[in-house]
Amino acid sequence: MTSTATHSDKNFFSADGKGTSVFRLFRNRFLTGLCVALSLLTLVPLFSIVILVIQNGCPLLSANLFTQLPPAPGMDGGGFGNAILGTLVMVGISLVFSVPLGILAAIFVNEYAPVSWLASAVRFVAKLLTGIPSIICGVFAFAAVVMTTHKFSALAGGIALAILILPTILLTAEQALLGVPYAFREASFGVGATPFQTIWRIVLPEAMPAIMTGVMLAVARAAGETAPVLFTALFSQNWIKGIMEPTASLSVLIYNFASLPYAYHIKLAWSASLVLVALVTLSNILAQVIFAPKHR
């Protein structure tokens, strides 16, 4: 190679000393182009969904959608205020159960006993649960809550969603805690802080933005799921009166109305899709603004 380089200077910088072949140059450009093209291709489904939902959802968009009840079959007018409220209530209930449980479990697993058998068991089960089909959460909540209370209810729907999102919250919170440098804990212990003070004052505030990202992912998932609420909260044509009543949700409304033979109800289902996507996006943006790290 060196001998080639000495008597042929123009090839000095080529790897094999023979100069760059046209074929290699072509192959390089072709593969780069392929990667760019395939990356663009992955955006196509995403954007087609958004465009489709906006196109079909916009015509009915008005304040009425948020304040009025769904029309009777075959009738026009009205909205789905009860379904929006129902979704918010059930997502709220699921967060009440899953956020404290998930974060506290993550704190135990990562801060108090990272090498214990209990921590390994919790991690293992949480990873298994992330793969569980959402309908199974619904079946479980049906058996555990609906059968025992003899009622379809927002509480049952919320519990089904809580089971669904608990592993996501736990695992993302654990990753968030892992991301806090050990030096912070050392500094805190070094001046005489207790483990509780160290976690509460130093570790949790530092991990909070990442924990909240996980919670928002979970909210997006919970708001959009149909299967867990389908036969736990059922559906309702009326406003929610209490958490022990059958409750409407956006996802079940979309599912029900899209399969009805009435044009207006199908349009309502499209609008509900748009509102659902907008709600999830909005809450994501809000969380990122509120929980952005401050001291950087």
Binding site: P181, A183, A193, Q197
Partner: peptide, 30 residues
């Protein structure tokens, strides 16, 4: 109590992600 009687400085400086003021008063606040 022992660690309060014995200050420690580490190899890599490890201030908390807080203000200068809060860093110093942390041992008092806890």
């Amino acid at each position: 109590a022992l660690r309060r009687r014995i200050g420690m400085v580490f190899q890599k400086s490890n201030p908390f992600p807080m203000s200068i003021f809060e860093n110093i008063v942390y041992p008092l606040r806890i």
